[in-house]
Write a protein that binds this DNA or RNA. Structure first.
Lengths: 116, 116
DNA sequence: GGCCATGTTGACGGTATCGTCATGGGCCGG
DNA sequence: CCGGCCCATGACGATACCGTCAACATGGCC
């Protein structure tokens, strides 16, 4: 049926885990799994269901929509997801600081692309 | 364990379905289910897994995060908008830096709220 | 070489969801 | 009253995931 759907999930799971610098064992411990379970997920052998999907998303701090390969409003990726999630919990002052920093970094990147 | 987790899902599913003016039968047809399956979901008898969760979210045009009861109140505001508009144009490296910084700031904020 | 962390794979019984179908109750319009 | 929706509920075998454990391949690193 939708065997490729779980393939997308497998890819994203691995991507999100590595973005946080976690081993499968660490993630397993964090989310309450057996290490092998994570491997099964990432190799497409199993598809998580309900509770486990939520536990994984919670532990990795990504959206379930992104894990499932659904289109998300903004740009996506584990880093973006992480930024998105945490930025909701900072003070107004710090949020402004983050925004200005992002602006500077974006300008720097634009410059670099112009003359490499 | 997570009997209440599926209760939240049941609530949200019904809410989303009624918001679109669909009967259980219509939604079933739309998403490729048996009508009884929808009823089982909404009464908490069953929890959907992977494929079915995605099919439901697609048919109802809602996020899986919301269906699962994950608090993803899409924050907004000019600073937030600015942050994400620029964050789309920074390098992967800088994005990671921003994400980690947001994480630190969020943690700091959480700490401050605990003992003012 | 040996050691340890990491990841893959395959098995096992237990359990939940799967699709399908049948039944029964409530409610409304004809 | 009765046919038509709507929904809830319960069964059935089939399938899939669950947790657990064991075995094995890697790839550093001493």
């Amino acid at each position: 049926m939708s065997r490729d759907a779980s393939q997308i999930f497998a890819k994203r799971l691995k991507e999100a885990r590595e973005a946080k610098g976690l081993s499968q064992a660490k993630l397993a411990e964090l989310a309450g799994f057996q290490p092998s379970a994570i491997s099964h997920f990432e190799t497409g052998g199993r598809s998580p269901s309900f509770d486990n999907l939520k536990r994984l998303a919670d532990a990795l701090e990504v959206s379930t929509d992104w894990l499932l390969g659904r289109e998300v409003t903004h740009s996506s990726g584990p880093l973006f997801e992480s930024l998105f999630r945490h930025a909701e919990n900072v003070s107004e002052e710090d949020l402004g600081m983050l925004a200005r920093m992002a602006e500077r970094l974006a300008a720097k990147e634009k410059d670099k692309r112009k003359k490499p």
